[in-house]
């Protein structure tokens, strides 16, 4: 049994809007009582349509946001306690949606070094960590390039290398593929899956693409600031009506399997891949 890494209890987050005279004009509840446990080494995908609260949720795990109510405990530390801040952000790195807006330096290796430099790590060790991180994401050939010359997928991999150089236990990703083309999307997903498997790094990925989450350990669906579904991809994808009620669209293979079952074709529930569907259909002949 793996260790518990993230423990979230009754998390509420309210955005408050004030007018010029500091009078509260509006509060909106982005998170409304979220409770979730994430075990170390797992790959969790958080799904939801735009405005479902999933991005707000992710920013609580590395204390970029503070709970209005409830608690977030990351590896035994309460995110609301200020003295935990830097230790927490070192262990829970974050990748954002726009690859351009998270690269700080105009040389790739210096950008990867940015995190360790902030942590005050000695120079020789930074050099070693940067080399390791770039090698791990397959970008060592671009060590001295300018990030401006890289593709979106490559930029995101540089961002991931920047986190790796801080030796994180967990990588949070806030719609990391939303601005990428299909090639870049595959690159980034392959990289994080490898890190999850080989380096045992916990991954929490926010996305609205269901086709990206067929091979994760666990899928959490959010809607209106609440967790509405939670299970393995197989379990989640067999509840297709529920998914559409939460404004999600399943991959074509799942939809086709579902449509066929509705017509009375006896194929098993929870089909996720082309091969599975083909096999199931051929067995019927």
């Amino acid at each position: 049994m793996n260790k518990l890494l993230i423990r979230i209890r009754d998390l509420v987050h309210e955005y408050r809007e004030y007018d010029e005279n500091d009078v509260l004009v509006r509060t909106s509840r982005a998170l409304d009582g979220v409770t979730l446990d994430v075990t170390e080494g797992s790959f969790v995908a958080v799904l939801g349509h735009n405005g479902s609260g999933k991005s707000t949720f992710a920013k609580h795990i590395n204390a970029l946001l503070m709970p209005t109510e409830g608690t977030v405990i990351f590896s035994g530390r309460d995110t609301a306690e200020i003295e935990n801040l830097w230790e927490l952000r070192k262990e829970a790195g974050m990748i954002f949606q726009n690859p351009d807006n998270q690269i700080i330096s105009n040389v790739v290796e210096e950008d990867v070094a940015f995190g360790p430099e902030n942590l005050g790590i000695p120079s020789e060790e930074i050099i070693a960590r940067v080399a390791f991180a770039l090698e791990r994401v397959g970008m060592e050939a671009y060590r001295l390039s300018s990030p401006n010359k890289l593709s979106g997928g490559q930029k995101q991999r540089i961002g991931i290398a920047g986190l790796l150089a801080m030796k994180p236990r967990c990588i949070l990703m806030d719609e990391p593929t939303a601005m990428l083309d299909p090639v870049g999307r595959r690159e980034v997903l392959r990289t994080v899956h490898e890190l999850n498997r080989d380096e045992h790094i916990t991954v929490v990925m926010i996305t609205h693409y269901l086709e990206e989450v067929t091979d994760v350990d666990r899928v959490v669906v959010m809607d209106q600031g609440k967790i509405v579904m939670d299970g393995t991809p197989r379990e989640i994808f067999s509840r297709i009506d529920e998914l559409s009620a939460h404004h999600m669209r399943v991959p074509q293979v799942v939809e086709l399997a579902y449509e066929l079952r509705k017509e009375g074709v006896p194929i098993p529930e929870g089909i996720l891949t082309v091969d599975e569907l083909v096999e199931a259909l051929c067995r019927l002949r």
């Binding site: 074509q252 083909v278 002949r285």
Partner: peptide
């Protein structure tokens, strides 16, 4: 599209 792949895979199996 994904369905194109499904159809081709099914055709290969003679389905």
């Amino acid at each position: 599209p994904q369905v194109t792949y499904i159809a081709h895979a099914l055709a290969e199996k003679g389905f």
